[in-house]
Design a binder for these strands. Structure first.
Lengths: 214, 214
DNA sequence: CAGGAAGGTTGACGCCGTCTACTTCTGCGC
DNA sequence: GCGCAGAAGTAGACGGCGTCAACCTTCCTG
């Protein structure tokens, strides 16, 4: 192994900076991330990180890139039911579960202005991959013969489904939500309800006797 | 009138600070807003704003509050068709239109961590008002007899519709979207498509011969 | 062995928010 | 008419930030 967990001057400072920055973001969010703090926590001078990253934006891009990787991997590892309807639902659950479990990392990916994307193609590749996962799951839904389902309709529906998930993920974490004084049961049921509504919107009928999946 | 448009030492510095800060946010976003810059642009010492606001967060809260007011007013002034389906669609259009026309103000309201909401109740009142507008429009939809439509279902559907709109608004402005290389027609049609899908999701059938409203 | 690059250090600059102390103006009670 | 309190504005300082520049080690290589 080439890195040490923490402290005692890491042998691989470049990697240690990323890890420490990830930890800081997970604790208190992107906006409170400072390279000086990273250096301080690593017991290293405030300029040391600059030997490995030209600027704060560059280390941020690296972190965003890894967040996308972790997110994509998480979505890929979701439980697969074999049933297209179930698969899409599990995808939605995985998406929202991640957003709620890692709110600061989620915000990092989708909630803050990113550094110039053209300079970080692999980060963008991960984003495309995630969208492709969603697109595939939707394409497999029953009642939608592939031949009558043009690419554009598919893109539009993927965009729609993504909007619901991203919107709900953002809203569930937003300060605004707390002032609405919604009943706790409403908040608990919000995800299942939204996923069921997505099913309805896409014309997928739940089998009889299965009103709303738990 | 008690304020001057710009320059020549405003008679009402408190108001002028808000206006200048709004302008800065509209130009370059919240994160680049600094009280020193505001003071500089107003030709006033860097401490002058602090005579009217205890901290940066307080002036920010004032601005967020006004953004909510403007947004709520905009939504209230949307065109009303008299038809519940059309009203909901126009509401969606107004919402997304505002988000796209004023991306930085929209991000200010929904995309950044807000100052402690409990200290700014009127700001929260505006947010509640907006949600109530949406709730009312949904309650009026046909095919949903009021008696069988419990408050919780209504809340859940309002949350769902809001998720779509907020999600789409965010995604259409996100850097991530640009890397997906979607066809321009897809992007143009995205809003209408999402609004139509909302209709389907809520069980509202479009009249025959009206596939997707323009 | 010379030399040079990679990696780390110290110091400085100009930004920022914020604290404190000083001035200037204004209105009000006496 | 006077004095004085308080509001409004100014000036300076502090620490934190990102970043630039200069310097020092260490170690690998031609």
């Amino acid at each position: 192994m080439t890195t040490e967990g923490r402290k005692g001057r890491p042998t691989d400072l470049r990697e240690a900076c990323v890890q420490e920055a990830l930890a800081i973001i997970g604790e208190s969010g992107v906006e409170s991330l400072s390279l000086r703090d990273v250096a301080r926590r690593l017991g290293v001078s405030h300029q040391a990180p600059y030997k490995h990253y030209p600027s704060r934006d560059h280390i941020l891009a690296e972190i965003v890139s890894r967040s996308f990787s972790a997110f994509a991997q998480y979505l890929d590892e979701r439980s697969k039911t074999g049933d297209p309807r179930g698969d899409l639902r599990e995808m939605g659950r995985a998406y929202l579960g991640y957003a709620i479990a890692q709110p600061l990392h989620y915000r990092l990916m989708f909630g803050t202005p990113l550094p110039d994307p053209r300079q970080h193609p692999e980060m963008m590749g991960r984003a495309r991959h995630t969208f492709a996962l969603l697109r595939t799951d939707i394409a497999r839904l029953p009642g939608r013969p592939a031949e009558s389902y043009s690419d554009r309709s598919l893109d539009l529906d993927a965009l729609f489904v993504w909007s619901v998930m991203h919107g709900l993920a953002s809203i569930l974490q937003s300060h605004v939500l707390k002032t609405l004084d919604l009943a706790p049961e409403v908040l608990e049921a919000a995800i299942s309800h939204a996923l069921a509504r997505i099913g309805t919107a896409l014309g997928v009928r739940a089998p009889e006797g299965e009103p709303i999946p738990p």
